[in-house]
């Protein structure tokens, strides 16, 4: 089990964190046309190697974090607070959201 060294809380098991996917710039919704918007929604770089991602320290400080991770080894290359960093996205809200558990 990998650990993520939370810039707030220190090293914690990955199970305390929620994975938010690759970070990517959000097109301006006011001017976006379908093609780039859907590329933003659905397409990832999906590299085998370093990638910049958003994670949430769900069971800890509840902060969203910018994580650089090598996807071939899961080694954490860098981890930082989102402030000042490139904008991360909040997309894919419905992906993986199970409709199962509705009351």
């Amino acid at each position: 089990m990998i650990t993520l060294s939370c810039p707030w809380c220190g090293p914690r098991n990955v199970t305390e964190f929620a994975y938010g996917g690759e970070s990517g710039a959000r097109p301006d919704p006011a001017t976006a046309t379908p093609q780039p918007w859907r590329r933003y929604l659905y397409t990832n770089a999906n590299p085998a190697g370093p990638v910049t991602e958003t994670w949430l320290h769900r069971a800890g400080c509840r902060r969203y974090l910018v994580v650089e991770r090598d996807t071939t080894t899961n080694e954490i290359l860098a981890i930082r607070r989102p402030g000042g960093a490139p904008s991360t996205s909040a997309r894919h809200a419905t992906t993986g959201r199970a409709t199962e558990q509705r009351p």
Binding site: R62, P82, T88, A90, A93, R97
Partner: peptide, 19 residues
């Protein structure tokens, strides 16, 4: 919604903290 309680909290925090 009851089942959405945790997810919507995170959804809001995501917008506030990152966007």
């Amino acid at each position: 919604t009851s089942s959405g309680a945790a997810g919507i909290w995170e959804w809001i925090e995501n917008w506030l903290q990152t966007e």
